[in-house]
Computed example of a mutant assay.
Amino acid sequence: MKQILLLLANGFEAYEASVFTDVLDWNMVEGDRSTKLVTCGLRKQLMCTGRLTVMPELLTAEVDVNEFDALAIPGGFESAGFYKDAYSDDFLSIIQKFNLAEKIIAAICVGALPLGKSGVLCGRQGTTYHLNNGCRQQQLAAFGVKVVNQPLVIDGNIITSSSPATALDVAFTLLEMLTTKENCRQIKHLMGF
């Protein structure tokens, strides 16, 4: 069984988190049944965009990176407090530990910015939200990241993407990296893609 930690900051985008839960749950029911998703946050209750309340299964202080095979991070809204959590020492430490262990890290949209701030993308290629005059890409570049203006960028163990529109692509890429191309193709088919 492969365990994936879904690391949630207050103010995360519900849609971007849901693609991981949906794709990996479809795999548990209809695929090779090898992917278990575990939610995690800094507090016992998180508010995402749209005011949906989520209670993560683990707190960041309880995470043992050795128990997980991959890390998934959805982006979020600054106005909802996303960066307060996403730039916290606990959040960044988890990212650093996953990278040090060379485990897969998948970030959607501005979920790439805490990767940049943590230092794991310094000198590497990545992308983030590309609209709104490219200000988020400029922020990522300020962390020493070689910003590539593509929808999805994979550099070694790290997947980053440019917008919510790429969220399903990130989730399917993560599934393929954790299982097989054939298994991923079957899940896409069963989900109607």
Rank of each mutant, 00 (worst) to 15 (best):
G156L: 12
N66Y: 00
L52H: 04
G75P: 06
I158L: 07
Q137R: 15
Y87R: 00
Q186G: 00
V147T: 10
L174M: 15
I154F: 06
L42P: 02
G134K: 04
G75K: 11
S118Q: 07
K44R: 14
L7M: 15
P56K: 11
C40W: 00
Y15N: 10
F20V: 15
E30N: 07
P56N: 13
A112Q: 06
A171E: 07
T60F: 03
G41A: 05
T179S: 15
V54F: 08
T166W: 01
I4Q: 01
F12L: 13
N10C: 05
F20A: 13
N133G: 02
Q45F: 00
L174N: 02
L92S: 09
F12P: 02
G119S: 10
G144P: 01
M1H: 15
L121H: 04
A167Q: 11
C40I: 09
I4G: 00
R51Q: 10
Q139F: 04
L113C: 06
V65G: 05
K146C: 10
N183E: 12
Y15F: 15
S79D: 13
Q45K: 11
E13G: 12
Q150M: 08
L37M: 01
A141Y: 01
K117A: 11
L175M: 14
I105K: 08
C184K: 14
A9K: 10
L178Y: 14
S163E: 09
C109F: 07
G116W: 05
N66I: 03
L42M: 13
I73K: 11
K146G: 02
M28C: 07
A142H: 06
S18N: 15
S161G: 07
S34P: 01
A61Q: 07
S93N: 14
G41R: 13
K188F: 04
I158H: 05
L168H: 10
A112P: 02
C122P: 00
K103F: 08
L6N: 02
L92W: 04
G11H: 12
Q138D: 14
R33E: 15
F68P: 02
C109T: 05
T179L: 08
N132G: 01
A80R: 11
E176Y: 04
P114K: 11
T180I: 09
N149Q: 05
D155V: 08
T127I: 10
E182R: 09
A72E: 03
S88H: 12
N183I: 09
N183H: 12
T180R: 12
F143K: 08
L52S: 05
N183F: 05
P114H: 10
F98I: 13
H130L: 05
A80T: 06
F82D: 10
A142T: 12
T49I: 11
L37V: 06
N10W: 01
F20P: 10
K36M: 13
Q3F: 01
G116N: 07
N133K: 14
N132W: 08
